[in-house]
Amino acid sequence: MGILENKFQDNVVVASMDKLLGWARSTSPWFFQFGLACCAIEMMATAASRYDLMRIGMIPRSSPRQADVMIVAGTVTMKMSLRVKKLYEQMANPKYVIAMGSCATSGGPYWQYGYHVLKGVDLVVPVDVYVPGCPPRPEALIEGLLKLQEKIQAERPLTKKIA
């Protein structure tokens, strides 16, 4: 404010390019439906009529090329982990990952004797937001998505970074 106050007409917006890009990218993240196990049912319930996911801009896409966010919902097994990596690499930048549920976070209830369970999906892909719960309530998933939106907004892709 200060110098710029009361100087412009309507329909003129002043903001930094970073903030504009952050606003555009964060408010319509299309998610890649990667439902694996029980958490997939809660993800479907979140996208259904009561806890509507489309009101915060998320639409389910089945192809990794069209998606921004990959919600890993459910247990990742060794057999599946190679495919998770492949699909993550097929997504176009900028891409984000939400690890939903305690199985995707750290192996979940199968951490102790599960020889075939991957102890957390962050062993194969970089994760941005962890949503705990077994399974997390739809409200918890929405909170995780809102946190992701805050994170995307706080990114500054255009600013020259030192080193």
């Binding site: 694996l36 196990a37 029980c38 459910g74 247990t75 097994t77 057999k79 599946m80 495919r83 209830p109 199968y110 102790q112 004797y113 599960g114 020889y115 075939h116 369970v117």
Partner: peptide, 25 residues
């Protein structure tokens, strides 16, 4: 086999009432 979570191996290592949450899943 993409969701093989070793349920039967868990059942051989936990008590009878601890098996119930595993049967849920």
């Amino acid at each position: 086999g993409y969701l093989h979570r070793c349920f039967e191996k868990h059942c051989e290592n936990v008590t009878y009432d601890q098996v119930i949450p595993y049967t849920d899943r």
